[in-house]
Design a binder for these strands. Structure first.
Length: 364
DNA sequence: TGCGTGACGGTTGAG
DNA sequence: CCCTCAACCGTCACG
């Protein structure tokens, strides 16, 4: 998957199977929707399948995020050190306790909730494998106790918990509840943290170093798990909120939007660091109408490292940062609460404020 | 015609 | 290092 070449959908749009649309397009979809443009028109205009438009808008309405979910990876383990520790305590206090009783107690004591409580079989396995010898200090417990936030629902720590990954300064924009989800599981160490390298420097080398990048930049900012799709995470973490409005870096957004509307006033934003091959598959050149048109910018991986070595510029153009991403901290697991997204009015204002765009109405 | 939904083939990354 | 698995993706077709 070095270079991923797009496929063309029925509308003539280019996409990469299995990969999310660029944030620029995702944002565009939301913007247009906010402007009252019908999804079908958005679909045609951006040449994105209506199903995708529908999905993105639905997600936005539900979570307030335009960002794709975390791809790949595994769920965090439910048998956290804290859970193991509690299980052990239960077992010590009552050697005859049954696994299902332990399970109940974990719930009752708030160690786990119904979403992350281990199964009875898991508990049995824990009892057998980890607590079988109670004289042995538990490896987890001793080393990673702090990381165990067993009481935390799964949502809190998984995918959509990167709202404020953007920039510390924008972690709490007005009206944007930031419940500080800062990850619950361990992995605070990142290249940037360790080396003290600003994320945006890392960003510029992502084409080649995307693999490492995905483990660095995002988490680098605030210790988020490198769990998110690298391109979204990267950008979120990397860009300072220069003109942040509601947490959105306008310049970054504008630049991003260049993909969609070269003909607009935004077209001047150009970035070599726009998308890495792996993360954004550098597509979507052309105009909103011709999103696909592999005309000006090829459908090539825009490898910043190659095209603009050492250039710190342009990286800002790569993405939209999660500003939109989490207008309200919302997780999207099954138990997620009803959205309570911003009102349409508010959302609209947000978008307009952010972009100050005068978006064209449907071209169709 | 517009749109929600699910199947599908794909990618990704933790374990 | 490779594999597995479960998450996600966008497209497509159907109703």
């Amino acid at each position: 998957m070095e270079q991923t070449y797009g496929e063309v959908n029925q509308l003539g749009g280019v996409f990469v199977n299995g990969r999310p649309l660029p944030n620029a397009i995702r944002l565009r979809i939301v913007e247009l929707a906010q402007l009252g443009i019908r999804p079908c028109d958005i679909s045609r205009q951006l040449r994105v399948s209506h199903g995708c438009v529908s999905k993105i808008l639905a997600r936005y309405n539900e979570t307030g995020s335009i960002l794709p979910g975390a791809i790949g990876g595994s769920k965090p383990r439910v048998t956290t050190p804290n859970v193991v520790k509690n299980i052990r305590e239960y077992k010590q206090n009552d050697p005859g306790i049954f696994a299902w009783e332990i399970r109940d107690r974990l719930l009752a004591d708030g160690v786990c909730d119904k979403y992350n409580v281990p199964s009875v079989s898991s508990i049995s396995r824990i009892l057998r494998n980890k607590i079988g010898n109670l004289s042995q200090p538990n490896q987890y417990e001793s080393s990673k106790q702090a990381s165990a936030q067993a009481g935390l629902p799964y949502n809190h720590i998984y995918p959509y918990s990167y709202p404020n990954t953007m920039s510390p300064k924008m972690s709490s924009p007005p009206g944007v509840p930031v419940t500080s989800i800062s990850r619950a599981w361990p992995s605070p160490h990142t290249v940037s943290n360790i080396l003290g390298i600003p994320n945006h420097f890392l960003l510029c080398e992502k084409s080649e170093a995307s693999a490492s990048l995905r483990h660095t930049s995002i988490a680098g900012a605030e210790g988020y798990p490198p769990k998110m799709e690298e391109w979204s995470s990267v950008n979120r973490a990397a860009f300072p909120a220069a003109h942040a409005v509601n947490g959105i870096d306008k310049s970054a957004i504008d630049a991003d939007i260049k993909y969609a509307q070269p003909s607009s006033t935004l077209s001047s934003y150009v970035s070599a660091c726009a998308y890495s091959p792996t993360n954004q598959y550098g597509v979507y050149s052309g105009s909103a109408g011709g999103y696909v048109a592999p005309g000006h910018h090829h459908w090539q991986p825009q490898s910043p490292a190659l095209s603009h070595p050492g250039s710190g510029m342009g990286m800002h153009a790569g993405e939209i940062h999660s500003p939109m991403a989490f207008k309200h901290q919302q997780t999207r697991e099954g138990d997620r609460k009803p959205p309570s997204p911003l009102s349409k009015q508010q959302q609209h204002e947000d978008l307009n404020n952010v972009h100050g765009l005068s978006l064209p109405t449907s071209s169709s």
